[in-house]
Simulated scan of single mutants.
Amino acid sequence: MSTRTWLITGVSSGFGYEMTRLLLEKGEKVIGTVRKRDKVISLIEQYPDTFICELLDVTDVPAIRKLVDRSFEKFGRIDVIVSNAGYGLFGAAEELSDEQVDHIIATNLTGSIQLIRSSLPHLRTQGGGRIIQMSTYGGQVAFPGNSLYHATKFGIEGFCESVVQEVAPFNIGVTLVEPGGARTEFRYGSAQVAKLMSEYDRNPAHGFLKMLDASNGLAPGDPVRMAERIIESVDQEPAPMRMVLGSQALAVTLSTLKARVADFEGQIDLAASTDFPSGE
C-alpha cells in the first residue's frame, strides 16, 4: 500500500505527538503544526524528509487557510486531515473570564471548523480523503466545572455530523474521535484553570481538582494505544462516524444516552400536544 500524507494540528504533545511518531515510524509523511518547535526537535532531526513541522496558532484563521493551501500545493495530495489542536479549561461558568471563554472557543471550536472548511475544496478536488476530528466523550456527556470545554466539543460534533452528510458524495469521510481520560498533557500539564471563587468551594464545579491531581490516581487511557486505533480507523470503509476510546468513557456515554432517550420517550404526549390537530 502506498504511503499517505497526513496534516495534523497540535503535534507537540498528547495524541497529536503519538500519532505523528507512529506514522513516521511507519514511513508515512506528516505535516505537523506546533506553536513552538522545541518539543518536536527530535522528530525534525530523525525524519527530515517525511516530517514537515509548521508553526501555527489555530486561532489565526488566515494562517490556517494559508497553511492548508500551501500544503496541498506542495504535496499535491493530502490523504488525512487531523484536527487535533485544543485544550481543556476548568472552572465554574461564573469563574471564567471573558478572555478565557473567547480563547477556548477560538481554539477548540472555530479553529477546528476553519481547518476543516479550508481543507474541503482540496479534498473534493482530489476525489476524496479523510477528516479526523478529535473530540472527547465530553462531546456527549457533560460534567460540572467544564462548561466551556463541553460547549466547544458539543459544538464541533454538531458541525461534523452535518458536514459528513454534505461531503459523503465526494468520497470524503469524517470521524469524530471521543477518547476518555488518558495520560497526556491535556490533564497533567496543559489544562487551564479559572480563578476559583470561594463560593464554589465544596461545590461539584470544583470536583475537577481531584482529577487533575495525579496523586489521586492516573487516567486509565493509554495515549499510544488510542493513537494506534485512530490511525487504524483510516482503513475502515465507510469511515466510522464516532469512535469512543476507553471502556470507562463508553460506559458513561451509554448510560447518559440511554437516560436521554428515556427522557425524550417520556415527552411523546407533550410533543404531540403542540401540533395542529390532524387535518388542519
Rank of each mutant, 00 (worst) to 15 (best):
T3S: 12
D263P: 00
S97D: 10
T125V: 04
M1H: 11
T33P: 04
G88M: 07
R70F: 02
G76T: 03
T33D: 04
E54R: 15
L96C: 11
H150K: 08
E232R: 13
Q165T: 12
I105N: 05
E185L: 12
A63I: 09
R4Y: 08
Y47M: 01
A205Q: 13
N171T: 03
R260F: 12
S147K: 04
P62L: 08
S215Y: 01
P48T: 03
E237S: 14
R124A: 10
I52P: 00
P277E: 14
A227Y: 06
A249P: 05
T136F: 00
L123H: 00
T5W: 00
G279L: 03
S97A: 06
V82K: 02
E157C: 03
D213C: 11
H150S: 11
G221P: 02
R37Y: 04
G189M: 09
A106H: 04
S71A: 15
I113F: 07
T175R: 04
E265L: 09
T50V: 02
I268V: 14
D263K: 15
N216L: 02
T9F: 09
E18H: 15
D69P: 01
G76R: 07
I268A: 11
L254R: 13
Q100P: 08
A272E: 14
G76S: 07
G32I: 07
S13V: 09
F72Y: 15
T125A: 15
D57R: 06
L270D: 09
Y188S: 09
Y17H: 13
I132R: 01
S247L: 05
V164R: 15
P204Q: 08
G145V: 06
E228C: 01
L43E: 10
S147T: 14
S278E: 13
I81V: 14
V163F: 06
K36I: 00
C53A: 12
S119T: 14
P240W: 07
Q114W: 13
S247D: 14
V11F: 06
E185Y: 02
I105L: 15
E18F: 13
E73K: 14
K153R: 10
I156W: 04
T3I: 07
V234Q: 01
I131C: 06
E99K: 11
Q100E: 15
P169W: 12
G155F: 11
D222K: 05
A239S: 15
R77W: 01
H122W: 08
I64H: 01
V58K: 02
P169T: 11
Q114L: 02
R117F: 02
N146P: 00
L7Q: 04
G111V: 06
